[in-house]
Amino acid sequence: MTTYNHMVFIVDDDVRIREALGELLESHGMRAIAFGSAGDYVLADKPDVPACLILDVELPDINGLDLQKQIAEGDHPPIVFITGHGDIPSSVRAIKHGAVDFLTKPFCDADLMAAIETAIAQDRERRSERAELTMLRQRYLGLTPRERDVLPLVVSGLLNKQAAAELGISEVTLQIHRRNVMQKMMAASLADLVRMAERLEIPITHSRRTGGN
């Protein structure tokens, strides 16, 4: 964690907490930006790196939990809640909605750092997955309409013959399309292609057994 390939956002109305957390994170060699309110955080320009949001539950403009709910729709970093007096329902609710941790002030250095590291790792994972998916979508868009017809049939496990019959084309033609699909999707194997189709949520519409629906 010595390179700045991450960012920690701190949202707390108490300037002392903001300062202390900033100091603590810096002493751990982490980058942090602090905001005094949820509104400031939402409006701020945020760098596009794996990140973590340390969010106070009691905020002047909005309850932290409500903020969590609001930004749940969008693309936001994992949240670590901190609170002056935690109660069980709040913590349950926060964790249920995907918070990484729910820490009660004052909190232990190790707990906080562990939570932050977990959150950033999660975000990094999520980002890479999303990048991969974007790439896959790009490749999929590169397919011709015919190849897009062929893909679900192939990943459904139909034999070339069956698939050709399904589309009313010759087996040779189908093989050409299939090869093109593999190449364009950069699939190493059929299994790889199936996994990609799964990621792309291409439905498996056929079964080899019945040879059609």
């Binding site: 108490d14 002392r16 202390a20 603590l24 002493s27 002030k105 004052p106 232990c108």
Partner: peptide
Amino acid sequence: HEVNQPLAAVVANSYACQRWLTAKPPNIER
């Protein structure tokens, strides 16, 4: 709650202070 806020800050700062002091070399200024 009233007491916890400054206390939380004190605790976090203490951790930070500890880290600065144990760093190699120690960051006395911070």
